[in-house]
Amino acid sequence: MKRARSAGIAALTAAIAALLAAASARAGDGAAQRGRAVLEAAGGCTCHSDVKGGGGPLAGGRAMKTPFGVFYSTNITPDPETGIGRWSDSEFVRAMREGLAPDGHAYFPVFPYPSFTGMGDEDVLAMKAYLFSLAPVRRENRPHDAWPPFSWRIAASAWRWMFFEPRRFAPDPARTPEWNRGAYLVAAVAHCGECHTPRTLPGALDRSRWLAGSKDGPEGELAPNLTPDADTGIGLWTKTDIAWFLQTGQLPDGDDTEGLMKEVIEHGYGHLPESDLQAIAAYLHSLPPVRNDALAEHEHGHEHGDESAE
């Protein structure tokens, strides 16, 4: 019985490993291998893959529809001209944790550096080692299509100055190592809050409603409430349900998940070791339940908004 489950999980892992074998041939060294696991914990950085537009994996160009306009993700393959091939370690670390490009300009927070700021040195550098082990793809970055004033580069700097503070994840000694691992993954690497936490008017995360769901998820999707509220959150999900969902994309009622969540499970979270999935589940279960019906809120927004645009 226990065996059946771990064997099932082993099989999933094996199948995934087989699929990735070709890609990993280049990722021979230890740091790159570890970095692949970090990248998977980050959801596979799927926002940098323009699947529908026919772009290569991680070569950027994917449109991210936000309330502030459409932003296009960037090429993070090691192409020296169009990607990040010329970046130094410190430039990569600064981009990830401080939201600054090598030339010093600030990124728009559609790039989740306010979450990645919590990541440890080792994880960030391992991620870079993995990215640099991949084949470079030549693909020019596409300028964002945001509405003024969000289209102005200075807006990103102003936003960063007003709402961002670099802060490494600090484990809570009063909690178990499992809880701390879950908290680190959820808040920093897996950046769950970027989609699942509602945002304030200027687009900063409303931390008083941490992970309580958002109607303004990326690509216009709705991101459900992840707190243990029984009515509007996932209070009825067991930890096993959560771990299984993150591994397979299958919901407790037998339905499947869609949209970006499906992609980040396929290319990312689904590859996490069982211990990490359990840690995430333990952390989510420990959250204070917040009553927030993101679906209803979404509907409310539509009544006053763009029905013609549907």
């Binding site: 064997a7 099932g8 082993a10 099989a11 994309g249």
Partner: peptide, 13 residues
């Protein structure tokens, strides 16, 4: 074979 079942469940999903 639970391992194969896991793989096929994923394919079904």
């Amino acid at each position: 074979d639970p391992a194969a079942l896991g793989v096929q469940m994923k394919a079904t999903g």
